[in-house]
Design a protein around this nucleic acid. Structure first.
Lengths: 127, 127
DNA sequence: CGGAATCCCCGTCGATACTG
DNA sequence: CAGTATCGACGGGGATTCCG
C-alpha cells in the first residue's frame, strides 16, 4: 500500500476516514478478529495471527488502544505479562467489522469469479 | 499505505483480506458512498469527491468493477459518456460498509477523545 | 516476555501532461 | 468527456537486533 501524506486537516473534517483508515493496514482486522474471543496476551495473539512480526503487532495494538477500542493491562510480574481486551467501544465497532468479514466470506466466490471474468476495457474504442 | 508485497498465495487463502483490502485505500469508501445515490457519470463522481484525481478515480472504479461491485456502461456518443452503477452485489456490500461509516460518525468523538487522553506507555517500567 | 530502535525496500498515491 | 502515461515521493511494514 502506498505512502503519501494523510493530510491531518482533512482527517479532522472527515470522521469516516479518520476511523476507517485503521482498517486499511494489513493487520488490524486480523488482530481484532482474534480479540473477539476474549482477553489475550501479546504472545497468544502472535501465535494465532502467525505471520505477524512483534513490531507490527505492537503497533497495531497501540493504535487500537489509542483509539479506545482495546484495553491494555500490564501485570508487573517477571516475566512480564500484558493482556489485551476489547473495550465496549471496541466491541461495538467490531460488530460492524464482523458484518463485513462475514460478507466477505459469503461472497468471496462471487468476487473471485467476477475478477476472473473481467476483461480490461480497451480504452473506449471497443473494436 | 505502505509498499510491500501482498503475497498472492495468502490472498487466495484469505477471503477477508482479499475483499477488505479494497477498503484500505483512500478513495473506495468515498466513491461508494456517492454511488449509493444512484447511477453517476465519471465527471459527476469527480465533482462530488472533489479532490480525487482522474487517475485515482479511474483506478478505484476499475477495482470496483473488477470485483463485480459496480457496473460500467459506455455510451459510444460524442462526447463519450460512461455511467457507473452498483450491482446488487455491490449494494449488499455497501450495506455493511454503510454500517461502519455510520458507526464512525456516531463514535468519532469518543475515538478522538480517547486519542487525546492517550499517553504513551513508558515501556513497561512504569516509574 | 513484551516490546523498542534501526535499516531499507517498494507499492501507492498525487501531480502533471497528454489523447481518442 | 473520460480517461491514460510518466514520474517521484512518501511512509508502511518486513527483517533484524537489542533491552528491562
Amino acid at each position: 500500500m502506498g505512502g503519501q501524506k494523510k493530510n491531518p486537516e482533512l482527517q479532522k473534517a472527515c470522521p469516516v476516514r479518520d476511523v476507517l483508515d485503521r482498517l486499511g493496514d494489513r493487520w488490524t482486522v486480523l488482530v481484532m478478529s482474534e480479540l473477539q474471543s476474549g482477553t489475550l496476551r501479546f504472545s497468544e495473539i502472535r501465535k494465532r495471527v502467525m505471520d505477524i512480526s512483534p513490531r507490527m503487532l505492537a503497533q497495531t495494538l497501540r493504535n487500537l488502544e489509542q483509539d479506545g477500542l482495546v484495553k491494555r493491562d500490564v501485570y508487573p510480574t517477571v516475566p512480564p505479562k500484558v493482556e489485551y481486551t476489547f473495550t465496549s467501544l471496541g466491541e461495538s465497532f467490531y460488530e460492524r467489522v464482523k458484518a463485513m468479514i462475514d460478507w466477505a466470506a459469503d461472497n468471496h466466490d462471487a468476487v473471485r469469479a467476477a475478477r476472473e471474468r473481467y476483461v480490461a476495457p480497451e480504452a473506449h474504442h471497443a473494436k
